[in-house]
Design a protein around this nucleic acid. Structure first.
Lengths: 155, 155
DNA sequence: CTAGAGCTTCGAGCGCGCTCAAAGGCAAGC
DNA sequence: GCTTGCCTTTGAGCGCGCTCGAAGCTCTAG
């Protein structure tokens, strides 16, 4: 699998190659579907560090279809888990829920929509890059202020 | 706006913390008051790429005090401009308005609060770093999906 | 068998950060 | 003088993304 290579790339990019936290997050959020079988809402919520409420909400607004077990409880199949893992990662990087709804519509509409989906991803990639640049600037400003701190709002 | 150019300069310079360029850039970025005199709400809004509504809102919630000219119009003194430039940058990196209110309270309370202010900045620095790490992961995930795109939600 | 925790659905509520509307004042151009 | 447009203040409204509450069902421990 190319996952190892990808992980190394990501870790290098992050600048803390040995951070176990980073590796853990990466394992969990990118390449994962851990139990490889159906999951409960609770399990999936813990995996993604969101609330069960949020997962139910995502289902309600049409982001994913989820099975029910014999008792009527939610049972997330690996396919659903994978989708939600992806959606959660997009949310974390600021993609609006509206866009995610559009995206899954495209997915469900079939292969004809691949180009548009790709466009969305490319655009989102640029958005993430802009965010990183913006944050890097804010980080530098914050560090500058820490370094030169004199007590006023101005350096 | 010239912000992009400024940002590029800043990013180029970030690798060299002792560069005089860094100081120059951040003097302008963080301590800036381009016209070097009072500014109107419109001018400041354009400078910061926010709406005049937002600037009035910030004043209303006590983030900054703003003079009025003979006609009753807002007139932002360099000191106020500097504060708002700083606040805006903190907002851009996700600091909640509640925290900014607390911060300016500390500033207005005098030098005794310097340590707490420093704590806030240090903590915010860590928050920004976490955000950057998170975004870097999302970027890797997005690029991975673009590269391997087959049409499904799974890799 | 019963208590308690957690699941279900559905509608409603909330916190954040603006954003706007209303009613009126000021300044510049025709 | 009048119109146009931006300014003022204040309270209200809004979009987003959850988050909770209520009423009822199910599973597990004791």
């Amino acid at each position: 699998m190319a996952t190892d290579e990808l992980m190394r790339k990501a870790l290098d990019a992050i600048g803390e190659p040995d951070s176990p936290l980073v590796k853990e997050v990466f394992d969990r959020l990118l390449a994962t579907e851990p139990p490889d079988g159906p999951m409960t809402v609770q399990q999936l919520a813990e995996l993604l560090d969101v609330s069960p409420h949020t997962l139910r909400y995502y289902e309600r607004i049409g982001l994913v279809e989820v099975d029910r077990d014999a008792s009527g409880y939610r049972s997330y199949r690996p396919e659903a888990v994978r989708r939600i893992v992806f959606l959660t990662r997009m949310r974390l990087s600021g993609m609006p829920i509206r866009d995610l709804q559009h995206y899954v519509q495209l997915v469900d509409a079939g292969d004809d929509t691949v180009p548009e989906r790709l466009d969305m991803l490319l655009e989102h990639r640029d958005t993430i890059r802009r965010q990183i640049r913006e944050l890097t600037l804010s980080l530098a400003a914050t560090e500058y202020k820490i370094a030169t701190y004199g007590g006023s709002t101005a350096p």
